[in-house]
Design a protein around this nucleic acid. Structure first.
Length: 258
DNA sequence: CCCTATGTTCCCAA
DNA sequence: CTTGGGAACATAGG
């Protein structure tokens, strides 16, 4: 279930493996994706990320846009191996890309431009705390829900929202419009630190996540609160708790997140 | 059988 | 208009 660091990891690996390469053939396995045409003959120009989305630019100007949702996985196989839940594949001279996705929520489509995807805040950009502060405006929703709202900020999911708010010492239930500019500065700095650290570790493999080569990431060792219910908060010695917020498991330390 | 799950979208209600 | 809740999508694992 990839968030920004996992998708960034995939994009960097894809760039190395398929950039400049020609697709010999592509095959739809799951008929939910039957609208996808065969990309045989197309060469890959570049790969980039928007939020949690992978965008693969082709030499005819089209962009193959992939969103992995909950259980989607993109794998590079130098030797083709049949795996369960394969929904789509593209063969190259050097190997093939396979989309594996048990729950079949992932989306894959060809688009003509990315512009609509680029208007949202990407937390790795030098987005000023001012922008957060301004966008929070009159929103009374909990700050965690605000961070998770992909229409405002793209890329942060449940694990990193919990970790960012812990690093910033902010209570997830605080109303977004209640945070001061100084507090948004802490959130913005925490987001950048947490996300960059996770990218350096090739993502968080708590359960499903594997990188392009099937390898788990290592950022699970860096988690301070997510999945740590009942454990000791490494910052203040309090006890990490878990409650529901908008239906999502929310891990936090009531003693140092105010 | 129960509950949970790193995501998104849609409908409905307040 | 904003926000929250629940369902839907569909499957695996504890």
């Amino acid at each position: 279930m990839p968030e920004l660091p996992e998708v960034e990891t995939l994009c960097r690996q894809l760039t190395k493996v398929v950039c400049g390469r020609a697709i010999l053939d592509s095959t739809v396995v799951d008929m939910k994706l039957r609208h996808l045409e065969n990309m045989a003959g197309r060469r890959i120009r570049s790969v980039c990320r928007t939020g949690k989305g992978v965008n693969i630019s082709l030499d005819n100007g089209q962009i193959l846009c992939l969103h992995l949702r909950m259980t989607g996985r993109l794998l590079w196989q130098s030797e083709p191996v049949e795996l369960p839940h394969m929904r789509w594949k593209a063969t190259f001279e050097e190997g093939r890309l396979a989309l594996i996705d048990p729950r079949r929520f992932a989306t894959l489509s060809l688009r003509d431009d990315l512009a609509p995807l680029c208007e949202v805040i990407d937390p790795l950009e030098n987005l000023p705390a001012r922008r957060f502060h301004a966008d929070a405006g009159k929103r009374r929703m909990p700050v965690k829900s605000f961070l998770l709202d992909q229409r405002i900020i793209s890329g942060i999911g449940n694990i990193y929202a919990c970790e960012i708010l812990h690093a910033a010492s902010i209570d997830p239930w605080r109303a977004a419009n209640d945070l001061s500019l100084a507090e948004w500065r802490k959130v913005s700095q925490a987001a950048k630190k947490i996300l960059l650290e996770a990218i350096a570790c090739r993502g968080t493999s708590i359960s499903d996540w594997r990188d392009l080569f099937g390898q788990p990431g290592e950022n699970q060792d860096n988690l301070k609160v997510y999945g740590q219910e009942g454990k000791v908060c490494p910052r203040c010695g309090g006890m990490v708790r878990r409650l529901k917020l908008s239906g999502r498991g929310t891990f936090y330390c009531p003693d140092c997140q105010k």
